[in-house]
Every structure is written in structure tokens, then in C-alpha cells.
Simulated scan of single mutants.
Amino acid sequence: MPRGGTVNQYSETEVGGLTLDDWETDPDETDKIVLTKYIGDQVNVVIPSEFEGQEGKTVEIKTFDGMFDNLKKENLSGNPKYYNELVSLKVGTTDKKVTLGTDSLY
């Protein structure tokens, strides 16, 4: 039997991160949107290239370090002590770029 196909289908009803309500942002930035932390509860997350109502503003990810800590859960078996429930992450929804505000993906 053939294998393959699409693992994740992204739609606005199945993913989080598509609205600014799902994010903490850097309040000091006014000419662009700098995402600092995901505060939504969906485990399939899309970081869009542009947010509704904020057309024309570029999107920047400040860092991935701690970005999804709200999805971190304690592992009852203790090894490892914590795990992250994040299942999938897609960056970009259009041909516009999403920039990374750090030179490290640590």
C-alpha cells in the first residue's frame, strides 16, 4: 500500500497563533510585530507572515527560547522531567518573510 500524504492540514479552526490574541509581543516595537511568547493553547501552531488588522507590519520572532513554555507539561514518569505538547509549527502563511530576531535557535 502506498505511503505518504500530508501530515498536517492547516486551517484557522485547527491551529493556534493566527491572531495576536495568541501572542505576547514587544510593546516597544511600533513599526513591526515582535512575537515574544505564545500564550495560546493549541498544539498545532502557525506563526503568520501578517496579522489581520496589522497589514503592512513585518513579523519577527524574538527567540524560540521559552517561546512555547506554556505548552510544557510535567512528565509523571520523571524521565525527562518535562515535555512539550507542541505537535507542529509552521512559520509563514504568505510569500512575506518572518524574521528571527536572534542568531541562535537554542
Rank of each mutant, 00 (worst) to 15 (best):
T58C: 05
I33V: 08
Y83D: 03
N79W: 05
L89A: 06
V98G: 09
L71C: 01
Y106R: 15
G92T: 13
D103F: 15
V15T: 12
Q54R: 11
E50N: 06
Q42K: 15
L20S: 03
V59N: 00
D22Y: 02
T36Q: 03
T58W: 11
V91W: 02
N8W: 11
Y38E: 00
T58P: 03
T58G: 05
L100I: 13
K81Q: 07
N70T: 06
F51W: 08
T58N: 04
K72C: 04
T30A: 07
E14S: 13
E50D: 07
T94A: 11
T19A: 13
L100P: 01
V59R: 00
K73F: 07
E24D: 11
E74N: 07
G78V: 03
T19V: 13
L105A: 10
G92N: 09
K57V: 04
T13V: 13
N70C: 05
Y82W: 10
E85M: 14
V46S: 00
G16Q: 02
L18D: 03
P80Q: 12
M1Q: 08
V45D: 00
N70R: 08
D22L: 03
F64T: 07
I47Y: 00
D31I: 14
V34P: 01
L100Q: 06
G4Q: 10
G78N: 04
F68V: 05
G40H: 01
Y10F: 14
L100A: 08
N44A: 07
D26M: 09
D69L: 08
L20Q: 04
G53L: 10
T25M: 06
K96Y: 11
S49C: 05
I47A: 01
Y38V: 01
K96I: 13
V45Y: 00
V46D: 00
L100T: 09
K97I: 12
Y10T: 12
T6K: 14
V7S: 11
N75M: 04
L89H: 04
G78C: 06
K97F: 11
T36H: 02
G78P: 02
N8M: 12
T94L: 13
I47R: 01
T102E: 09
E24G: 04
Y106Q: 13
N44R: 09
T94I: 15
L18T: 10
E55Q: 14
P48W: 02
V59S: 01
E29Y: 10
D65H: 14
I39Q: 00
G5W: 10
T30Y: 04
F68T: 05
D22F: 03
T19D: 08
E85K: 15
E60V: 15
P48G: 10
S104Y: 12
G4D: 06
G101D: 07
K57D: 00
V91Y: 04
E52H: 12
